[in-house]
Each structure stands twice: as structure tokens, then as C-alpha cells.
């Protein structure tokens, strides 16, 4: 079953700047995929369309069996309750504690205080930050803040996790740690889409990779394809 289906999607911003052209994409439920490309290739726009921050100029987007192309504000809010978000700049509320940040999505959904707190604590244990739950985000390192953001994304048990340059502000070892966390989440059945241009991470942890350039999908490869292509490249180099 497909988690995401994009049919002939195009996005042209109001100022006339084109961001995506004729995107056809299918992401099966439980898949893990990188969306890669240089700056301005359209990675963030593609993610924004998936969480309805922008509407496509053309085409249809299905999430599960639901067309999410033209939802009203209230329906968008309810859709987002099934999606987890992780961003490069963490997007944590600086004036609230770590546990309050993690608990926020459940608070919004009106879940009881007791259940919210216990679930938030559970997730802080999962990301290894339960001992810092009363700290404010600015008292944490970049890697720790990103782990808090992941815990917040996971608290709603999302069907889909969207990450936009999640390792952009982190050094290599922290980036690897964060990516491994995404794999753990993926293994629980959550579909994970990571927009990144960190080739090092993609090389070491190969997964399906959708490459964008100037708003077009230029390649959509699986690790086996990547490996075989690398093998071909190497053999050509040898020749």
C-alpha cells in the first residue's frame, strides 16, 4: 500500500518562481527514502507540499487513500497530527522545558495530562534525554536538541516522519547518531522521508534516494542500484 502518491505535481510560487515540475512519486508505507539535491532543487518544497504548508499549482497528492491537495485549515491540522516533523533548526519552543516541548503535540490533541507526561517521559528515555527533561532547549547541545525534536515527532506515533535537513547543523558523529535513530523509528513501521544533501550520510547508510534538480526528479534509486552503479563506475575507472 502506498503511503504517498504524487501525480504530475507542479509548484510555481506566487512571485512566479517555479519550484517543482511534473513530479510523479510513490512512497510505499514503511519505506525509508532520502530526497536529495543541491540548494534550490525543490527538496523543501516537496516536503512542504506533503504537510500542506503549500498547495501544488497542479497535480494531486494522495496520503494513504486521502487526497490532501485541497484541505481546509482544520483538516490540515488533523492531518498533521499523523505526521512527525524534524527540522534543521529543531523548531523547539525556547521558553518551555524539554518535556513540555515533547508533550506539546499530545496537549494539542487534548490527551490527559497524566498520559501526556508518561508518554513524553517514555520518549525522552527512548532518545536518552530523560535526565535533562526540565532543562530549556538552549541549555542543550545541537545533537540533544535534535533528539528532543525527534521525541516530539514520535510522541504522536506518526505514520509518516518528515525530516528536512535534520543533520545540517550537526557534526558527522551526531549526524550518524540521529540517522540511526530514524532507522530505528522506520523499523517500527513509520514511513520516513529525509530531505538532505549530506552525501556522506547517504553513502554510509544507503537507502532509496530520490534526486531532484531544478524541480525535476532526475533519479530514483535503491541501494542495490546505487551499488551496481558504483560498481559500473569503478569498473569504468579501472578500464
Amino acid at each position: 500500500m502506498s503511503m504517498i502518491q504524487m501525480c504530475r505535481i507542479a509548484k510555481i510560487y506566487d512571485n512566479g518562481v517555479p519550484a517543482l515540475y511534473d513530479i510523479d512519486l510513490q512512497i510505499p508505507a514503511g519505506d525509508f527514502a532520502y530526497i536529495t539535491g543541491s540548494s534550490g532543487a525543490g527538496k523543501s518544497t516537496l516536503l512542504r507540499l506533503l504537510y500542506c504548508a503549500d498547495r501544488p499549482t497542479r497535480g494531486q497528492i494522495l496520503m494513504g487513500n486521502r487526497n490532501i491537495t485541497r484541505l481546509n485549515a482544520r483538516k490540515i491540522a488533523f492531518l498533521r497530527r499523523q505526521i512527525g516533523f524534524v527540522f534543521q533548526d529543531f523548531k523547539l519552543l525556547q521558553n518551555r522545558s524539554v518535556i513540555e516541548n515533547v508533550a506539546l503535540p499530545l496537549q494539542v490533541q487534548g490527551v490527559s495530562v497524566k498520559e501526556t507526561r508518561s508518554r513524553a517521559f517514555e520518549l525522552l528515555q527512548y532518545v536518552g534525554l530523560e535526565y535533562k527533561m526540565q532543562r530549556k532547549p538552549l541549555e542543550l547541545s545541537g545533537g540533544e536538541q535534535q533528539r528532543v525534536a525527534i521525541a516530539r515527532a514520535m510522541i504522536v506515533r506518526p505514520k509518516l516522519l518528515l525530516a528536512d535537513e535534520p543533520t545540517g547543523n550537526l557534526d558527522y558523529s551526531l549526524a550518524q547518531e540521529i540517522m540511526e535513530m530514524f532507522f530505528r523509528i522506520n523499523r517500527t513501521g513509520t514511513t520516513v522521508l529525509v530531505a538532505t544533501h549530506d552525501t556522506e550520510v547517504m553513502r554510509l547508510l544507503p537507502q532509496r534516494t530520490i534526486a531532484l534538480d531544478n524541480g525535476h526528479i532526475i533519479s530514483d534509486t535503491r541501494p542495490t542500484d546505487v551499488l551496481s552503479k558504483t560498481a559500473i563506475d569503478q569498473s569504468q575507472e579501472t578500464v
Binding site: R74, R80, R81, F85, L93, V108
Partner: peptide
């Protein structure tokens, strides 16, 4: 405004 943006991302309705 960051707080408002974060609230919209985690699924809060505009009235909430």
C-alpha cells in the same frame, strides 16, 4: 511567530 509556526506544525487548529 516561531511559537505560532511550531503550533501549526504539530497539528493545532487555528482557533486552538
Amino acid at each position: 511567530r516561531d511559537e505560532l509556526e511550531i503550533m501549526t506544525l504539530i497539528g493545532a487548529t487555528p482557533m486552538f
